[in-house]
């Protein structure tokens, strides 16, 4: 069970079209990634709300196909 980096990126962008997304593969096993996501949609939202947007974008893959996704989210400067 694994996911490709571009699959994660496209799912995030489908939910957050304006997002700048950077994905780093942490373990090379398709299950441990880190993602930096910058989107206007995050402005004024708490970290929990921001990360929830990402988890919802991944439609249930989080915790199943994807074991770990370390998130760094922010609104554009």
């Amino acid at each position: 069970m694994a996911m490709a980096a571009r699959e994660i990126e496209s799912m995030i962008k489908a939910a957050l079209p304006d997002a700048r997304v950077e994905i780093r593969d942490l373990a090379g096993d398709g299950e441990h990634y880190a993602a930096t996501v910058v989107s206007e949609r995050f402005r004024g939202k708490s970290r929990v709300q921001q990360h929830r947007l990402i988890y919802n974008a991944l439609k249930g893959n989080m915790g199943g196909q994807l074991h770990a996704l370390a998130l760094q989210t922010s609104a554009p400067e």
Partner: peptide
């Protein structure tokens, strides 16, 4: 918590976040 990963930290009944958020905070 409608949060799909573990760990999850709660303080006084409120969900604070998972590992990334707790570390950032």
């Amino acid at each position: 918590s409608s949060w799909s990963t573990i760990p999850q930290l709660y303080v006084k009944g409120e969900f604070v976040g998972g590992c990334d958020i707790v570390r950032e905070m």
